[in-house]
Design a protein around this nucleic acid. Structure first.
Lengths: 213, 213
DNA sequence: ATGGAGCTAGTACGAATGTTCGTTGACAGG
DNA sequence: CCTGTCAACGAACATTCGTACTAGCTCCAT
């Protein structure tokens, strides 16, 4: 990426700030005054350069038709994720019916920064109740982002439902023969061994969010 | 909140969509064509109503000077937060100089959904290295969002620097006489007692983020 | 009816704003 | 010295775009 002149950096910065403050982009003349430039044509000249360098996008003949591409300013940094409910020991894990996902309104949603999602699609959120996942460093009240698991591989961190114990738990998953080893995140804690048929994998956990009042 | 006409709802919706798609607000005429309205004056008329009802904000004589207030459409669902560095046991905690906060470019930033911040300002992020906070359910690699603490109250979750042990740790803070009790999040684990002068509080932890590959 | 309120139209004015054009000065290369 | 490029200027031009004005239509209470 080529180097920009001081004036260009200043313009770029101003456009971003203006956008943050007003909700719409500045005009050529706004930029002119803010950056102490004597002529609108100079602004235009430098805007062309900024566009050529890929820092902004311009829309000809459209007033305020400037878009900052910089990434930091980039659109869609957060995505609504459906908060399907709670996950608690002794309670079945809510199942995500595909119809629910398209339901019109009545679902609670949570806005999550896209960087937390690693580009995954169809992720949903569950609020953890109880301490069934405490040994995976997930506290009561934490929110886990779960990606529906079509298939699980050894070593994945999964939300597992232990049918016999009627307990939901978050562990690393290892299939060993016809038994499943569920390994806590904390190496000082012991693994759980369960019959393969006793374990129902709900999905992989993509992220954990904890909000402290 | 008063009821809006079908046409007004449609306009409101279109403005939001247009903004999402283009990065700048639509003109009166954009709205006119999109909503099949025969005259710009009708658009203006209804925009006035939308403003009166508190759904949008208009800026007179400024082209595309429309801002959607609705909340759902509300921009700024995520905020860039400076990622100041790492926090590790045996290493001093980076201090946030106010000048650094205004530094031009070179700082790493992390986008965080505003709901995680509880409206706090000047929050910064630190990546946790090591297991010094494992008993507060914070793993190696987790990111903590820290709000600079002007004052701490008993029971707050704080990032504390233990001078004598040269160790950073995340605990609940209780001042008891001239001693400080640092209580882990996990009730099964023992508290640490330290001399009040040996403890340096860096800030309150607002949230914990964990990203699982 | 009568008239006002609420909404929609069609048109036009004029300010806001993007863009072009002719010049100028600094500077490097031939 | 000449020439081309880069950056900057100031003025003018051409659209874009917000807003005002007038008028018609429906509903409803007077």
């Amino acid at each position: 990426m080529k180097k920009l002149s001081e004036r260009q950096v200043r313009m770029l910065r101003y456009i971003g700030d203006f956008l943050d403050e007003h909700g719409y982009p500045p005009t050529v003349r706004d930029i002119q005054y803010a950056c102490s430039i004597s002529s609108t044509s100079v602004v235009d000249y430098n805007l062309r350069i900024l566009e050529r360098e890929g820092r902004i996008r311009r829309f000809p003949d459209i007033s305020r038709g400037i878009e900052v591409l910089d990434g930091r300013q980039g659109r869609r940094h957060s995505t609504p994720v459906p908060l399907l409910g709670e996950i608690a020991a002794g309670q079945p894990i809510p199942v995500l019916a595909s119809e629910d996902y398209n339901a019109s309104e009545p679902m609670d949603t949570l806005d999550v920064t896209t960087s937390m999602l690693n580009g995954e699609k169809n992720v949903y959120a569950l609020r953890v109740r109880g301490l069934s996942m405490i040994d995976a460093l997930v506290d009561d009240g934490d929110v886990v982002l779960v990606k529906p698991a079509n298939e699980v591989r050894n070593g994945d961190m999964v939300v597992a439902w232990l049918k016999r114990d009627k307990e939901a738990t978050l562990k690393r998953f290892y299939l060993e023969g016809n038994r499943v080893r569920l390994q806590p995140a904390n190496s000082q804690m012991a693994a759980i061994y369960a019959d393969a048929e006793d374990v129902e994998v709900q999905g992989k956990v993509v992220a954990v969010l904890r909000n402290l009042a």
